[in-house]
Each structure stands twice: as structure tokens, then as C-alpha cells.
Simulated scan of single mutants.
Amino acid sequence: MYVFGLTGGIGSGKSAAAEAFRALGVDVLDADKVARDVVGIGSDALKQISQHFGSNILNSDQSLNRARLRTIIFTTPDEKKWLEKLLHPLIRNNIEVQLSKGLKPYQILESPLLLETNQADLVQKIIVVDVDKDIQIERASQRDGVTRGDITAIIDSQMPRAQRLRRADFIINNNGAPADLKRQVLDIHHQLVAIAQAETKNNA
């Protein structure tokens, strides 16, 4: 099974690209969803997080207060390292299990941390959704209802744009309209099908 990675910074349109691939019948595994499942109510990981940060890290329904946790890890690097050490192996293992069930010519692993973690080892090619920083800040601040300053701080904490682009095998430029993004996804889809089919023949 051929697996391609899909990533991009906050507000880049990565999720929109993932939906465009899904509309073409491609299986897309969302690493963010896997990460949410790993810390679901009653999970061992959530219990460890609660013990480490205190019970006020939980909502009244005992689910994780993500906003509170996000504030802590963005302002305290050591706490971020602790959390990553706990969660990244669990998330990777879950991703590996789900990818192993794929039956179609290729799958996509959609992950904002694809290049910042060892998740990149799970894919054969990397697709980066790219957008100019001003557009990125505007879209993300409107979508999330937060200030431009907050979005800028998140961007600055992520992998630099130039470094992300250097790792890309395919680049989707999302500065334009949604129809343009879908056109680029369709073009890349045809290329990915060809790559996966060629690989299958070589391994036959």
C-alpha cells in the first residue's frame, strides 16, 4: 500500500485539500482525529495528563480542555516536551494500525505535524499545502475566532515555511479560490495513482 503525506501550516487549507482528495474516493487518515481519540474520555493517556497537569485540565464532562492545555504547552517548552513524549508514540502506533487496513491504490495521511515528528517515516511522498503568510493569518484568525497575533505566534512555533517546502514532493498553492485548489488536487491525484500503480507492478 502506497501512503502519501499531506501537511501544511495553520490556515493553509490542508483540511480543504484533504476533503478534495476524499471527494475523489481516496482514503484519508486524519492524524488530528487519531490524536483526539488517543486522549478520549477514560483513556490511559488522559489519566496521565490529568495527573501531570492537575484535574483542572479537564472539562466538567471529564474530557480534555484543549484550549487550556494548548496555552500551557505554547508557553512552557518543557511541558510541551513531556506531552509529546507521552502522545507521539501512541499516535504513531494508532496511525500504523489504521494505515495497514488500507485496500485502495493509495492512501493519504493528513497531519499538521507530519514533518515535525517521525510520522514522515510512514509515507513515501509528501504533499505540502502552501499559502502566503498574510492570507494564512487572515484565514486562520477568521476561522478560529482568535487574534492575528495569536495566529502569528502559532505560525512562528511551527516548522518554517521555506523548510516545509524544501521537503515537499508536491506543492499545492492555495492562495486562490477553492476551485483552483480542487483542480490542483485532481492533477496530483492522477500522478499519485500512476506512482502507486507503477510501484505495485514493480513489486509483483
Score class of each variant (00 low, 15 high):
M1P: 15
M1A: 09
Y2W: 09
V3K: 12
L6K: 10
L6S: 08
T7V: 03
G8L: 01
G9C: 08
I10T: 04
G11C: 09
A17L: 03
E19I: 05
F21A: 03
F21S: 07
F21C: 05
A23D: 14
A23P: 04
L24I: 08
L24V: 07
G25V: 01
D27M: 06
L29Y: 00
A31T: 00
A31H: 10
D32K: 15
K33H: 10
V38F: 05
V39R: 04
V39L: 01
G40V: 10
G40N: 09
I41A: 07
G42K: 06
S43V: 01
S43T: 07
D44F: 00
D44G: 08
A45L: 01
L46D: 07
L46G: 03
Q48R: 14
S50L: 01
Q51T: 12
H52R: 14
S55M: 06
N56R: 12
I57R: 05
I57P: 05
L58F: 04
N59Q: 13
D61P: 02
S63L: 04
L64N: 04
R66P: 13
R66H: 10
R66D: 13
R66C: 12
A67V: 15
R68W: 03
L69A: 04
L69T: 08
L83F: 07
L83T: 14
K85F: 13
L86A: 11
L87W: 11
L87S: 14
L90E: 14
L90K: 12
I91G: 04
R92Q: 07
N94H: 15
I95N: 06
V97H: 13
L99V: 07
S100M: 12
S100A: 15
K101F: 05
G102Y: 01
P105D: 15
P105C: 08
P105Q: 08
P105I: 02
Q107N: 13
Q107M: 11
S111D: 05
P112R: 02
P112A: 13
L115T: 08
T117M: 04
N118I: 04
N118K: 12
A120T: 13
D121I: 03
D121N: 14
V123R: 00
V123S: 01
V123I: 04
I126F: 00
I127Y: 10
V128H: 01
V128I: 09
D132C: 09
K133C: 09
S141I: 06
S141L: 05
Q142Y: 00
T147R: 07
T147Y: 06
R148M: 08
G149W: 02
G149R: 10
I151N: 15
I151V: 14
I151M: 13
I151W: 12
T152C: 00
T152K: 03
T152P: 03
A153R: 13
S157Q: 10
Q158F: 02
M159D: 12
L165A: 03
R167V: 01
R167D: 11
D169A: 08
I171P: 11
N174V: 00
N175E: 14
N175D: 15
A177N: 13
P178S: 09
L181K: 12
K182S: 15
R183T: 11
R183I: 09
Q184P: 10
V185F: 09
I188M: 12
H189K: 03
Q191L: 06
V193K: 06
A196L: 05
Q197N: 09
E199W: 04
N203D: 13
